[in-house]
Amino acid sequence: MKKKKVLLVDDEIDFITTLSNRLGMRGIQTDVVYDGEQALDYVKKQEPDVIVLDLKMPGMYGMEVLRKLSKTNADIQVVILTGHGTDRDEEESQRLQAFDYLRKPCDIETLADRIRGAQQFKMQKMMSAVAFAEAGEYDTAKDIAKDAEALKTAGKLFKDE
């Protein structure tokens, strides 16, 4: 079965390293990058299922990363984790269909639950897309799963299971 990938994006190195360790202790393996550019580069090479994304980072702002992802990799589930948190940011992230919006500091169990929830949500979305595709309703399948590549992977995945 395909290993679920989680990417953490934050410029606070001590914070994100410790968070990654603690998630690892809870069975959630993560990769870490430190700014928005690196996050987009990572996504080009290996699409994660879930991204935990800080908003205020040097260079590219997290919201800009979310905006780009919503156009190019809409199936990736994004959990915003920020110390910045304005109401406007929260509304904008909802509009861009982020899976969740959490404020730092955040209880580790809550974060782990949301990451698992995001993974499950993506999986369910792909399953229903595959089901529609198998029933010949390709347009509906495409509407559900925005990324055709992800749909193919999901199709193979469900056959394997």
Binding site: F15, R22, K104
Partner: peptide, 24 residues
Amino acid sequence: LAHLTHDIQNHLATIYESAGWMKD
């Protein structure tokens, strides 16, 4: 205020995680 409170929040979050790691 926005800049500095954000940064203070980041320091607090790192402390929270380090303490959490030890508690874990």
